[in-house]
Every structure is written in C-alpha cells, then in structure tokens.
Computed example of a mutant assay.
Amino acid sequence: MASTEPAAEPGAGGSEAPDRPSDEAILQQQNQIRAEQAKVSEYVGQEENLDALKAEYENGNQNFVQKISKLGERYRTFRRTRGDGNCFFRGFIYAYLEGLLQSQDLVEANRFMSVVQSWKGKLVEGGFQELVFEDAMELLLEQVKEVTRASTDQFSQEKLLVNMRDDTVSNMIVMFLRLVTSCEVQRREDFFFPFILGMYDEPPATVELFCQRHVEPMGEESDHLHIVAVTEALQIPVRVVYLDSSGLPSGGGDGSGGGGGLEASCHGFVPDSCPPGTVPRVHLLYRPGHYDILYAKST
C-alpha cells in the first residue's frame, strides 16, 4: 500500500544538501573517536626505539621521516602516552618522576616536595577547596617519596610504570597538576592574559573563565601557555621538540635522512628561578595535538 505520509519537499534540483554539523557536534565526534582510540592504549607505554616512530610516516610525510632521523643524533628512545587530551601533563610528570628514580637526586626531590606542599596554601587562597585537591597532592608526594626510597626498598621503574597506569593514581595526579596550572595562570593574570588573547578568535572574557574551560577540565589539550605555567609553578625545566611538516625534504626527498636532513625545532621552558645553563629535566616530543616522552642520549 502506498504511503499516505506527505513527501518531503525537494530542494533546488530535486535534492537538498544536508545541514552542516555544528562545531559542537564535530568536536563531540572528535572526542568520541579519541576516547575510543585511547581505550586500547596504556596511559604510559613502554620505551621504544625511534625507528618505531619513523615507521609510522615512511609511506607518508617525508619531512617527518627526516626530522625523526635527525632526532636520533640527540635522542635514543621515546615513550608513548595515551592520546586522551592529558598527554602533556601525564608525560611531563612521568618523565620527571622517572628522572628522580634514576638519578636518586635527593636535593631535587626535597625541593620539589617543598614546592608542591607550598601550593596547598596558594590553591586555597585562589579559591580551590582543599577537599578537592588534598588527596591528589598526597598521591603525588607519595610517588616522589617512593622513587627516592629506591635504594632501600627496591622500588623499581616497573612499579612507577604500574602506578602511573593506574586510573586513580594517574588521573588524580594529572588533575592536581591542572589545578596548579590554573592557579598559576590566575595568580599571574597580567602576564598570561596576552597569551589567551592570541590563542582564540573569540577569547574567553576573563582569565578565570579561560582556566575553567581550557585548563582545569580533564581531557582538554595543552599548549604553550599550559607548559609555561606549570614549569614556572613547579620550577621544572622542560624541553619540547616540535615535530611538524614544515620545510622541504632534503636529499632528494627519499626520507633516508641523508644529506643532513631536516631538523625538528626545539623550545626550552626554563623557569625564571633556574640559574643560567640549567639543563632540562624533562624532554617531550610534540606532534600536532599530542605529546610523548623523549630520552636524550648520554653526554
């Protein structure tokens, strides 16, 4: 039996283009895809040879291939972090804790714990409820205590990896770092507001609103501003290697890395409190939208 429902009116030419999805719908779809991809990866992966990274681009972007080849002159391996929007904070703190574990630098560990503890009062003063962050802060301090007790209780790198793969431990520490970053940005509003103005066509009206939207929520991606704020807040120097497609392939563009090759740009985030010549304690690799951990060769 033929339908008695009225037919939809066709558009010009007998068809009508579907409405364009809203920006919010597109963002939601991207977040869903990213969340699905994240489920199959650990928060922090195993250390891998840079050849594994280069292999991802061998049939694609040759600029990336050549830049990764050049990276091999200064870096020996890398470690993946989950692409869930928290990769910068997770990679940053894992690499720092791992460095403390390997160096057993008790002076640095004590300095860091003092700085973290000093943020309790600053956060409360900044309007953050102690109930929200105190357990997360203690979890971070406990990780530092454990890695610096390695010589007496056999704390291993594997145990640090297990801890930072744990949903509760890993995410609470990331949350705490986000709150510290937010508080630092708001405490230095005059310094950071120009950054915010340059980041968006329609920037949030206030620094506080920016932090509520783009710093504090879990899963919000990090950029230059976040790195400046957290490195200053915790006084930890960081170097970020930026891997992008800029430049023209050299050596005939065959991706072999011959003829010198292209070199990824680097940026050092050194807190004002650090003396001249300070070397980075954390090395991160940035690919568009994502951060992984880099391991420098011994000098």
Rank of each mutant, 00 (worst) to 15 (best):
K120N: 08
Y200W: 12
D105H: 02
E125W: 11
S103H: 04
G127W: 08
L160W: 02
L100Y: 02
E189V: 05
S170P: 00
E138P: 14
Y200L: 11
M113V: 09
Q129N: 13
S103T: 10
R111I: 03
F192I: 08
E125V: 11
G121V: 13
Q143I: 06
V174L: 05
L140H: 09
L197S: 08
F155M: 00
V116P: 00
C183F: 06
Q117L: 14
E130D: 08
A150K: 08
S170Y: 05
K159Q: 13
V147P: 02
V132G: 02
S103P: 06
V115L: 03
R188E: 13
I173S: 04
L106E: 14
Q129Y: 09
E138M: 15
F193N: 04
K145T: 09
G127S: 11
D153W: 07
A109D: 13
G99W: 09
V162W: 10
G198I: 10
V162L: 12
L139V: 13
G99L: 13
N171S: 15
E189G: 12
Y200H: 15
A136K: 14
L197E: 12
A109N: 07
V116H: 11
W119T: 02
V185S: 03
M172N: 15
E146F: 04
Y200G: 00
E142F: 14
F195A: 05
T181C: 06
N163A: 11
R178G: 00
T148H: 08
D135A: 13
R165A: 01
L141W: 04
L160M: 01
M172R: 15
K159D: 10
L177C: 04
V144W: 03
T168Q: 09
F191D: 01
Q157K: 14
D135G: 06
E130V: 04
N163G: 05
G127H: 05
F128A: 08
R111E: 01
L131W: 12
R187P: 09
G198C: 06
L197Q: 14
M113D: 00
L179E: 07
S114T: 07
V132A: 10
K145W: 10
F128P: 03
S170C: 08
S156G: 00
L179Q: 07
M164R: 05
G127I: 07
G99A: 14
M172L: 01
E189H: 07
V180G: 06
